[in-house]
Amino acid sequence: MRIAVSASGPGLDAPVDTRFGRAPWFVVVDTETLEARGVKNGQNPDLPQGAGIQAGKTVVETGASALVTGHCGPKAYRVLSSSGVALYLGARGTVRETVEAFRQGKLSLAEGADVEGHWV
C-alpha cells in the first residue's frame, strides 16, 4: 500500500515533521518496494486559515491510503476520513524509520483528531 508521511524534506531519509498542516512535504511511500516521491504541501499563502484542510486535500489527491504524522486536528481529520484515508500518529525519526515502524505494526490507527483545531 501507499502511505504519506509528513516530512521536512522530499526523500526517504528526510526527518519527519510532526506537524501535519504546516509540514513542508509529504513523502508518499510504497510500503512493499520503498519507492518514494515527495509532494510539496503547497499552501495558498493568500488563505488566512484552513492549512489542515488544504493539507488534507493534498494528501487525498496523492492517492495514499494512509497518512502518518505527529498530530492532526479535527478539520484535517474530516477531510482525510471523508475520502477513506486512514490516520496513523506517532511519526518520529526519518521517513524511512517511520515507514519501517508502520510495516511492523508499531503505529496505532487514530480514531479521530488528537489536537484542537485552530480558529483564526
Binding site: Q49, G50, Q54, K75
Partner: peptide, 19 residues
C-alpha cells in the same frame, strides 16, 4: 472561498460551516 469553508477533497465537497 477565502476561508476554506468549502473544499473539494477527492470526489466529495466538504463544508466547514464554522469557518
Amino acid at each position: 472561498c477565502r476561508f476554506s469553508a468549502i473544499v473539494q477533497a477527492g470526489k466529495k465537497i466538504l463544508v466547514f460551516p464554522e469557518l
